[in-house]
Amino acid sequence: MSVSAMLLFLLLGLVVFDADLAMHKKLEVKSLLELANHDATFAINQELKTEGIIDLNLDEAMDRFARRMAENGGYSRQGAAFLPSAASVTSDPLAFRYYYIDFQHWQRDFQLSLQYQQGNLQEVSAVFADTLRPEGGYVEVAITTEEGEELRLSPKRMVGPSLVVVAYVDEQPFVPLLSGHAFPVVSVEELKW
């Protein structure tokens, strides 16, 4: 076997390994987001609950979210990003945004458009539809990358007031010859009361 053939097989092996690594990271980040978001949705405003009003205490919810991201993934929150530790699944920060969909809006479709730029997710638009869906509205998320590519995530249905968290991973490749790992992840969790 010639040296060029061996190099070709080595390169193909690296491409397969890199693709597998990217998929693993996406699944792991999705799992981390869903676990943290699940815990965050228990942060019900207790004073309002005694008056029969169910509402999310956003400060407590985000504290719970950050604590769970640290416990399960080794990430620490800094502004609108989660910074990885040496034990984290990603090596670069996770940019994120969150939205609380309350009792007045969960039965309406929610279209969220974000722009990823210089390590941040910036809101372009956040629009609720006029039509009510008694079974719950859909959350539709679109993210425009720095290269101008629009990424659309599969719609997720809300079954009650919900906390929506969107994260975007954009990190360097395992092998410099290959493209980096960039992907969005969304978690929609109903309030737990």
Rank of each mutant, 00 (worst) to 15 (best):
S125L: 06
L14K: 04
Q172L: 13
S162P: 11
P161W: 00
F174E: 12
G136A: 14
G136D: 07
E189N: 14
V89D: 00
L21Y: 09
R133Q: 08
P134T: 06
F65M: 07
V165N: 04
V169M: 03
R152V: 15
D170I: 01
L112F: 13
Q172G: 03
R157P: 01
D130Q: 15
F65L: 10
P84V: 04
E28W: 01
H181T: 06
P184Q: 09
R108W: 00
L10F: 09
L191T: 09
Y99S: 08
Q78I: 01
A70N: 10
F42S: 12
A19P: 00
K26V: 00
P134S: 11
L153K: 01
I44N: 10
V159R: 15
L14A: 15
R68H: 08
H105K: 11
N37I: 04
Y75A: 03
P155L: 09
I143G: 00
V3T: 10
A129S: 15
S88G: 06
P173Y: 04
Q117D: 09
V169S: 03
I53E: 13
M62C: 03
L14G: 14
E171D: 08
G73L: 05
N120W: 00
L7I: 04
L114A: 02
G180Q: 11
N45L: 02
V186I: 09
A80G: 12
S91H: 08
E140Y: 09
A95F: 07
G148A: 07
F9H: 04
V165G: 00
K156W: 09
E146G: 12
A66Q: 04
T144V: 13
A80I: 09
V185T: 05
E146Y: 06
I54D: 01
V124K: 13
P134V: 06
E71L: 15
L58F: 07
Q104C: 02
D18F: 00
S162A: 13
I101E: 05
N37F: 02
N72H: 06
N45M: 06
P93Q: 06
Q115H: 07
Y100G: 03
L12A: 14
L7S: 10
L163H: 05
E34W: 03
V166T: 10
S88E: 00
A36G: 11
A36Y: 01
I53Y: 08
N120Y: 02
I54P: 00
R133I: 15
A167Q: 01
W106D: 01
E51G: 14
L153V: 12
A40F: 09
E146D: 06
G119N: 12
